[in-house]
Design a protein around this nucleic acid. Structure first.
Lengths: 153, 153
DNA sequence: CCGTATCCATTCCGATACTG
DNA sequence: CAGTATCGGAATGGATACGG
């Protein structure tokens, strides 16, 4: 499982996140986990991925602390894969991707799976980036502060 | 540029987004674009990626409507790559990944590049998923409404 | 400085067969 | 149903050389 280029020592959190998730399959596995999938077969049917690939990705996600393996709740001899707190923290990422997809990859009125509030059935509000004091801000209102690696002193 | 498995016809917006972005390199290119990079060489130095790979990714992002190619602003014969409105809409995705990375991949006090508000220099507020009427909600408060593809009628 | 073309090693994916 | 083992093909990514 060696990957061509590692970002896990980058000083950019985006790069480390990207590195940790590993590949797109993994993110769709996480999506399914949020959606309630727990069993090997559930993921496999949902994704249509080869079993060896799925097994490898699940292992990687477990190693990465995104999923936990627990004994099956139905008494069978198998495992279930559940999100860790760290994995659950990917909620914002999934929602952001979902909203971007909804906005740009579906023609108006084209049906698609939708994430709604459980109680009311109503769709979610679009995510908003906000300043420390709560004002909505956009890309142009922000700057990346790079750290200085020249002399760690 | 054929990819093994396509998700661009999935009814899940997350899958389509994932498919559209293509790979992790692309997302880091977008990150750099938000950070002000516009020139081929800037991206290359920042990412340390091979030039052929970078060229292919840039082309894919342009084809996908995430970046636009414009003549260089300095009068040179080359191109600059700027985010389209669709590309700028990835801001939430980048911020979500950034915050996830900050929370889980840096030891307390470990320096890292940081996204701050331009005016105040203060860090951003963590993203919050909210219901239609504005209450903060979490993964357990949501359900995915799958669409029924059985009989398109 | 930009970008393309080529070459090659790696590996990733998909299918299949197999075990409990 | 859950997961492992293996195999072959495909294609990516990295290095480098080249041309505008």
């Amino acid at each position: 499982m060696v990957r061509r280029t590692r970002f896990d020592d980058s000083d950019c959190p985006v790069a480390r996140s990207v590195d940790a998730i590993g590949d797109w399959w993994s993110l769709l596995i996480v999506r399914d986990a949020f959606d309630g999938s727990r069993r090997f077969g559930e993921f496999q049917r949902s994704l249509g991925v080869a079993k060896n690939i799925l097994a490898a990705r699940l292992r990687a996600l477990v190693d990465g602390g995104v999923l936990d393996v627990v004994p099956a709740s139905d008494g069978s001899a198998y495992n279930e894969y559940v999100l860790t707190p760290k994995g659950r923290d990917l909620f914002n990422v999934i929602v952001a991707l979902r909203q971007w997809g909804e906005a740009h990859f579906f023609t108006s009125g084209e049906p698609h799976s939708e994430l709604v509030e459980r109680g009311t059935g109503r769709p979610l509000r679009p995510l908003e980036v906000r300043s420390a004091d709560g004002r909505p801000i956009g890309p142009d209102d922000t700057v990346v502060h790079k750290i200085d690696r020249s002399l760690p002193a």
